Amino acid sequence: MAEGYGVIAAVVVLGLGGLVGAFALNKALTVTHATPEKLTTYESGVDPVGEGWAQAHIRYYLFAYLYVIFAVDAVYLFPWATVFALAGFGAASLVEMFVFLAFVAVGLLYAWRKGVLSWT
């Protein structure tokens, strides 16, 4: 019985040793020289100019929100499509998915009626 725990303990010790060794090797091989250029703020390859405050139009947040809604929709649709053909999942899962898609369609219709989906 104890030999099973010995194998687990050996794997844990080897794993932790490898982790500590990797961090130590990284620290030993890293060359760091703090220069003024390295200490400046860096954002997407653009030098910082002016204030750090910029306002974004609310439209971009709405597009991000719509993307999240449809990404979640896709996350639910693909697993549903894989189990739909299995025995016992046919009619009930079809009705549940149409209810789910109806909620998503109502949300899309609401966004369309509010003019969120137009760029102008």
Rank of each mutant, 00 (worst) to 15 (best):
A54M: 10
T35E: 01
I69A: 05
A24K: 07
T41P: 02
A54R: 14
A34V: 10
P79Q: 10
A54D: 02
G15V: 03
Y60H: 10
G45A: 08
A56C: 01
A9P: 00
S118F: 12
R59D: 05
H57L: 00
A85Q: 11
V116L: 09
V72G: 06
F98A: 12
Q55I: 01
V12A: 15
F63S: 00
A10V: 01
R59G: 05
A9I: 04
A2K: 08
V99C: 11
L94D: 06
E51N: 12
A81K: 15
F89D: 04
A64E: 05
F23I: 14
F23E: 03
V13Q: 04
A10S: 10
G52H: 08
A2Y: 03
G90I: 00
V68E: 04
H33N: 10
G45K: 05
Y61S: 06
W112V: 11
G50K: 08
T41K: 15
T30N: 03
G88T: 10
G45Q: 01
L117N: 11
Y76M: 10
L25I: 05
Y65K: 14
V20L: 13
G4K: 03
E51V: 08
G17R: 06
F84L: 15
W53G: 00
Y60L: 12
A81E: 09
T120E: 14
P48C: 02
G52S: 11
V12T: 13
L14M: 14
E51T: 15
W112E: 11
F100H: 13
G115P: 02
L108N: 00
A10I: 02
A22M: 09
T41E: 11
A102V: 06
A10K: 07
V95N: 05
F63H: 00
I58T: 05
Y110D: 05
K27A: 15
Y65I: 08
L39A: 14
A22W: 07
V75M: 15
L39G: 06
V104W: 00
G50H: 06
G107Q: 03
V104I: 15
L16F: 15
A85W: 13
S118T: 15
F103T: 04
S118A: 09
L117Y: 10
A92N: 09
A102I: 06
F84E: 13
W112T: 13
K38M: 07
V12D: 02
P48G: 03
F23L: 14
I58R: 08
D73L: 12
L66E: 00
A28N: 08
V68R: 11
G115T: 07
F78Y: 10
